[in-house]
């Protein structure tokens, strides 16, 4: 996930303080890990530098100065581009898992055991997510589902790889 784009898109709804942005982000997306302030301000600084946001107003209160950020026209365009740009599927081609399986085969270890262990781990995570999903609200469910489906994809890959281990072993060792 691109944090800068996410914050930018949240700003499109109206100018906000960095603090508000973090709250909103956590509420919508931060179930797994809430953002820390540093992350927010560092990102905002980069966006400011690139001209995608501007400082709308500075408020001087009792504490530190509070800047209110607003999205620029360039920022809106950027969000639009980001949303319309599909994520590159090629990202997953060289996964760690694949590497592990090949390495196990090359070093003469039990590759099936690697896969089995991985499946158990995946299923455990899936089980946790499923449990959370059935107890939470719709937003919870949608987010968990996204993760579940990815895990499911991995599991499918594990399953298929288990079935093809013999052939893979031949090819890798030749």
């Amino acid at each position: 996930m691109s944090l800068s784009h996410t914050l930018l898109a949240l700003l499109e709804r109206g100018p906000r303080h960095g603090y508000d942005l973090k709250q909103e982000f956590d509420a919508q997306f931060g179930q797994d890990r809430p953002l820390h302030y540093g992350q927010v301000y560092a990102t905002l600084a980069r966006l400011l530098k690139n001209g995608l946001v501007e400082v709308d107003a500075v408020e001087h209160g009792g504490g530190p100065e509070r800047k209110r950020y607003a999205i620029t026209t360039a920022g809106v365009t950027d969000v639009e581009e980001w949303l319309s740009q599909p994520e590159s599927p090629a990202l997953y081609l060289h996964s760690t898992l694949y590497t592990k399986v090949v390495l196990a085969l090359l070093t003469g270890r039990d590759a099936a055991a690697v896969l089995d262990a991985q499946r158990a781990a995946h299923l455990d995570l899936m089980r946790t997510l499923t449990r959370r999903k059935t107890r939470g609200d719709l937003a919870d469910a949608l987010i968990c589902d996204h993760a579940i489906f990815h895990l499911e994809a991995d599991l499918r890959w594990l399953e298929l790889t288990s079935a093809r281990l013999d052939r893979l072993a031949e090819e890798v060792r030749s």
Binding site: A112, D116, L123, M126, R127, T130, L155
Partner: peptide, 26 residues
Amino acid sequence: EPSVAAYSHREIVVRDGRIRTSAGSA
């Protein structure tokens, strides 16, 4: 289907008539 199996407390995997692994309950 893993997504269905995820509703379980634990799983066993059967392949060629044998149980592959029996992960402990989690």
